[in-house]
C-alpha cells in the first residue's frame, strides 16, 4: 500500500486504511509520519474528549453510553482506548471492547485499542497521532480513554479539548489520587455508578475541593452523577460536554489552546527527531562506547562528553 493510497483511503473514510495507518503509527513506521503530514490539513475538526479516572470507575461503560447519546444526536464517533502494556514482556491485554459491544456493528463508530508500549516518543506521541488519524478520517467526536493511575493520563489530556475525570462512590483513597494529579486537568467530573451508596457524598467532596481552588475560574468544572449501566445522567453529561466546547470557543481558549498545543507538539517532535537521530548515529560507535567506559572510570566527566558528542555527531556536517 503506497502512502498516497493510504492517505486517499483515510480521506475516503475506508476503515481498513484508518486501521492500517494507526498500526503504522503504533509501530513507529516512517510511513506513518509521511501520511500524517499529508493528512494534517484535513484535521482539526473533531471534538476530542479525554476520559480518565481510576481503574474500575466505569470509563468504558461511560464512553459506550456517551457514544449512544451522541449517535442519537447524529454524530459520528471514534474511540481510542489506551491500556498499559506490561513493562516486562511488552504485551498487553486490551479488553475495553468487551464493554462496547452495542456499537460493534455501527458503521459510524470506530473503536481502536492501544497498548502504551514503550514508545520512544512517549505515550502522547502515538496516541495523539492516532487521534489525528481518526480526526482526518472525519469522525465528529473522538474519545480518548486512559487509565488514570499515573503520569500518562496527564500527557494524553493535552490532546483533548474536553477532559472528563471519572470516579466512583466509596473509593476513599482515590480522592487522594485526584488531588495529587488530575484535579487540575478535569473540565468535567463524573461520579459514575450513581446507584451506589455514597454517590452524593462523593459529589460533595469533589465540589468542596473545587471550591478551595484559589484561582479565578471562567469555567467551573461541573460535578455530575451518572449511571453508565442505566444511562441516567448521560444526556446531561453530553450537554455539559457541548457547553464546554462552546465555552472554549467563546472565550478564545480554543485558539489559545491550539497555539499552545502546536508549540508543544513542534518542540516534542523536534526533541523526538533529535533524540532518535542521535541514538541512531551513536549506535555501535567505538568512541561512544569508549567514552562511556571512561566516564565510569572517572577518567572523563559526562557533562563534557555530552557536549562533545552532540557537537561531533549531531552538528557536524562531515559525519
Amino acid at each position: 500500500m503506497s502512502i498516497d493510497e493510504l492517505v486517499q483511503g483515510v480521506l475516503n473514510q475506508k476503515r481498513r486504511y484508518l486501521a492500517r495507518l494507526i498500526s503504522l503509527i503504533e509501530d513507529e513506521d516512517i510511513q506513518a509520519m509521511e501520511a500524517l503530514s499529508q493528512l494534517y490539513k484535513h484535521t482539526g475538526k473533531g471534538h476530542i474528549i479525554g476520559v480518565t479516572g481510576p481503574p474500575g470507575s466505569g470509563k468504558s461503560s461511560l464512553v459506550t453510553k456517551l457514544t449512544a447519546e451522541f449517535r442519537k444526536r447524529s454524530k459520528t464517533i471514534g474511540i481510542i482506548c489506551v491500556d498499559p502494556s506490561s513493562p516486562f514482556t511488552g504485551g498487553a491485554l486490551l479488553g475495553d471492547r468487551i464493554r462496547m459491544q452495542e456499537h460493534s456493528l455501527d458503521d459510524e463508530v470506530y473503536v481502536r485499542s492501544m497498548g502504551t508500549r514503550g514508545h520512544l516518543g512517549g505515550l502522547a506521541r502515538a496516541t495523539s497521532d492516532a487521534v489525528r488519524a481518526v480526526d482526518a478520517f472525519g469522525k465528529d467526536i473522538i474519545f480518548v480513554e486512559t487509565v488514570g493511575t499515573g503520569q500518562s493520563e496527564v500527557e494524553v489530556v493535552d490532546v483533548a479539548h474536553t477532559v472528563i475525570v471519572t470516579d466512583v462512590p466509596g473509593s476513599g483513597d482515590d480522592i487522594q489520587a485526584i488531588k495529587a494529579g488530575i484535579m487540575e486537568i478535569a473540565d468535567i467530573f463524573v461520579v459514575n455508578k450513581s446507584d451506589l451508596a455514597g454517590a452524593d457524598k462523593k459529589v460533595t467532596e469533589i465540589n468542596a475541593m473545587l471550591d478551595i481552588d484559589p484561582k479565578e475560574q471562567a469555567w467551573r468544572p461541573p460535578v455530575l452523577l451518572t449511571n453508565a449501566r442505566t444511562g441516567e445522567g448521560i444526556p446531561e453529561l453530553v450537554d455539559n460536554i457541548l457547553a464546554h466546547l462552546e465555552h472554549l470557543k467563546g472565550s478564545g481558549l480554543l485558539q489559545k489552546k491550539g497555539l499552545q498545543r502546536s508549540r508543544d507538539e513542534l518542540q516534542e517532535l523536534m526533541k523526538y527527531k533529535l533524540t532518535k537521530e542521535l541514538s541512531q548515529k551513536l549506535q555501535g560507535k567505538p568512541e561512544y562506547e569508549k567514552a562511556i567506559k571512561m566516564i565510569a572510570k572517572r577518567k572523563q566527566d559526562p557533562y563534557t562528553v555530552a557536549e562533545q558528542l552532540i557537537a561531533e555527531f549531531l552538528f557536524s556536517e562531515t559525519r
Binding site: 491485554l93 479488553g95 468487551i98 449501566r229
Partner: peptide
C-alpha cells in the same frame, strides 16, 4: 431490565 454486560478481564 436491560442486558448484563460482562466487565471482567
Amino acid at each position: 431490565f436491560g442486558e448484563y454486560k460482562a466487565t471482567d478481564l
